[in-house]
Amino acid sequence: MAENERTQVKATIRRAMQAAERATNELDAQAMMELATLYQSALVEIQYLITNAADELGMVRLSQLQALTTQIEGILNQINLTQSNMVDGYIVEAAKNGGNTFSTTIPAERVSQSIDSAALAVRTMKQKDGLQLSDRLWRVHRNAKEQLIQAVERAVILGNSAADAAQEYQRRAEAVPSEISQQANMASNSALNKKMKDVLIDDQGAPYHQIKRVMRTEINRAHGMAFQNSAFEDEFVVGTKFKLSPNHPRRDICDMHARVNLYGLGKGVYPKGKSPWPAHPNTLSYEQVVFIDEITEDDRTNTSNRIDWLKGQSRGTQKAVLGHDKKVSALHRDILSQNMIATPWKHVEPALKRNGIDTDSL
């Protein structure tokens, strides 16, 4: 291919790459908005059920508990079905954005295969914890049921028990202890409605935040995998470059992946099948294509490894990447291997002990 023509093709791919990144960012924003609407609507339904189950004093009695929890479970089942369909749909759209980046340079059939392969991989691949996407979605659903049902049952049981105790104090014309009054209020519809909002949406580990994390991670993964699949169908593509988002919030393992020249292709550039992207859930990092004529002699000769790169960083950066002070100490004592860098300390420590290393001394 003539040099000028190849330059034009590369420019076209880069424009398509930027457009695909924007489209997936917009897709992510749309998904988050749709998810927020789903959970807010479900919360309104649950709060309506609670208010409707309360008596004339605004208390949910034990006699209403079983029916109420059954109704709440039904709403949570519907959330699970809806969000599972949402995740699947957004995965396909994100894969299309990534794969179609190269629609002008590779045959349509290969683009289609790249997209289908990425979508299938996202659905079926097992992560380090052994879970597939369907397992993660089920775990979010299971946790939602456990957290909400247990919260309702605890509030109603303790609240009714405290209300009975308060009546006994009143019958004896004695002051009701403040802790009894507070517990009795737990079964009120106002307190229960607030509790449901906290448990379902507001708390840090709420199901809403769990599913946001899953959905955002898999949308990005689908885009990236389809992008990689299509990219390497182009004979001039030699690798993909691990890029930090302009909104990269803090130093972490992504900084290492973006700056180490492992393969002689340049800093953060990885050949087919070797990219560590995505390095963690909810990542903001992304990838760009690298062409063979962009690799310099300096790139080819100045290779590095992760351990050496880490040793050249500040202790703060080392801790940010490794995630544990003892892993930092292991690095300085030359007993941390490259395959331990991303491994949690709870798994690294037994491996070191098996090699006769006193981890208490680290």
Rank of each mutant, 00 (worst) to 15 (best):
R6Y: 01
K128T: 11
R142C: 11
A11V: 02
L81T: 13
K197P: 00
R333S: 15
Q71I: 04
N52Q: 15
I50Q: 11
L158V: 06
R333A: 06
G266Q: 01
N97D: 12
D299S: 12
A29Y: 06
R123D: 09
N4G: 01
K96T: 05
A23T: 04
L158Y: 12
V60N: 06
L27N: 04
L331W: 01
L76S: 03
F236P: 00
N80G: 14
D88F: 13
W277N: 06
A151I: 02
M215C: 15
V269G: 01
I219S: 13
T24I: 07
G58I: 08
Y263Q: 13
D202G: 09
V152L: 08
R221P: 01
A155Q: 00
G264I: 01
L310K: 03
S178P: 00
T283I: 05
Q132P: 00
A108M: 15
T37I: 13
G58L: 11
Q228W: 01
R250Y: 07
Q132I: 04
H347F: 07
L362F: 04
L62W: 12
M86K: 11
L262N: 02
S134Y: 09
L27M: 11
M59I: 07
S117A: 07
R300V: 08
L200W: 02
A118H: 13
V289P: 00
R354H: 11
S114L: 04
K326R: 15
N85R: 14
S337Q: 05
R15E: 04
G273F: 09
R110M: 12
V140S: 04
Q150L: 09
Q147H: 09
K267H: 06
W277S: 08
W309V: 04
F102W: 09
D198M: 10
A226M: 10
M256K: 06
S161E: 06
S188P: 11
K274Y: 09
L68P: 07
P281D: 12
N282E: 08
Y208A: 05
E5H: 08
R354C: 02
Y270F: 15
P278C: 12
Q66R: 12
A155Y: 01
T283N: 11
I335H: 00
Y270I: 03
R221M: 10
K195M: 14
I201M: 12
